[in-house]
């Protein structure tokens, strides 16, 4: 009997390991291979007539000229303002998501009581409508004779603003609106799991409700806040259609995603587009590593 145990345990662990196979297969097929294909295009050549990429699948044949040129432009050339602008837009939109999303998630998780289910359903509702349709709806709301200006008019505020004429705040609002549900849901699940007894303990020990929030709830919700931020900013960095729709293609609001889209879809320079994809990925990877290191540190601290 005793001798059979380890083998049984080994068998069952193999079964559990087998559950990971589809996920790993998916990751290899749609992430590793895809990224390698992007690299092969970035470091490859282009058909002189058809302008289609000729990917260099063999790393020994990789040509890094385009990448080094693009890097030069990113750090010291015309692409620098685009990257700086993208970071600003995403940063501001994230700040907006925190300001709007945190109270909503907090209320839904801890204060909503019986209407919690309804609130959650309301939070999931935007996912029923395609992101694109929601952005198109905004273009109608924001146009000069749109609903936003009408509402401003009711309050005797200036109501002749053209919100779609290429202003940064329109893009930031659009990004914020588009991604705030992604922000709220992970944060909600963290806030909901905070042990109520810890908060009660804080109050019992004489802290005001604000002090309890700052000293107990907020620190405990940091992992959720981090996860929510990562989930929102990663797609925001690659976003280009929000901008395209809300500013009708103003050069003032061009983001990295727009440059990538242009290079890949409309030019004979797919290597430049692919290089930009890799550079953006590398930057996001740094953020991702920071997130992972912080999460692991927090977990270790919690285990101690």
């Amino acid at each position: 009997m005793t001798a059979a145990l380890p083998s049984r345990r080994g068998g069952s662990s193999r079964i559990w390991a087998a559950f990971a196979v589809p996920g790993i297969g998916w990751l290899v097929a749609f992430f590793v291979v895809s990224v390698y294909a992007v690299m092969a295009v970035a470091f490859g050549d282009v058909d002189p007539f058809l302008k289609t990429p000729i990917p260099a699948w063999n790393p020994l044949e990789w040509d890094v000229t385009t990448m080094s040129n693009v890097l030069g432009e990113v750090f010291n050339g015309y692409l620098r303002p685009v990257f700086v602008r993208t970071f600003w837009f995403v940063g501001l939109a994230l700040l907006g998501c925190i300001l709007v999303g945190y109270p909503v998630a907090y209320f839904a998780a801890r204060k909503a009581g019986r209407s919690k289910g309804l609130l959650l359903a309301a939070l999931v509702l935007p996912f029923w409508i395609s992101y694109l349709m929601r952005m198109l709806a905004w273009t109608n709301l924001l146009q000069p004779d749109g609903f936003v200006n009408q509402v401003l008019g009711w309050f005797s505020l200036p109501d002749n603003r053209n919100w779609l004429d290429g202003d940064w705040y329109t893009v930031v609002i659009g990004l914020m609106y588009g991604y705030v549900p992604f922000f709220i849901l992970p944060l909600y699940s963290t806030l909901e799991r905070i042990d109520g007894r810890l908060i009660e303990a804080g109050r019992d020990l004489g802290a005001s409700s604000m002090q309890t929030f700052i000293r107990v709830t907020l620190p405990l919700s940091v992992p959720g806040l981090m996860a929510a931020s990562v989930i929102t900013i990663l797609p925001m960095f690659g976003d280009y259609y929000t901008n395209t729709y809300l500013t009708s293609g103003s050069p003032r609001t061009e983001m990295v995603g727009n440059q990538i889209e242009n290079y890949l879809r409309n030019t004979g320079q797919p290597q430049t587009g692919a290089s930009l994809v890799l550079i953006l990925m590398a930057m996001l990877f740094v953020l991702m590593v920071y997130y992972m290191v912080t999460t692991i540190r927090q977990q270790r601290a919690a285990e101690r």
């Binding site: 602008r85 004979g268 320079q269």
Partner: peptide
């Protein structure tokens, strides 16, 4: 194309 990318970049 490159000149255009510079223009649309701002």
């Amino acid at each position: 194309e490159t000149a255009w990318a510079k223009f649309t970049a701002g």
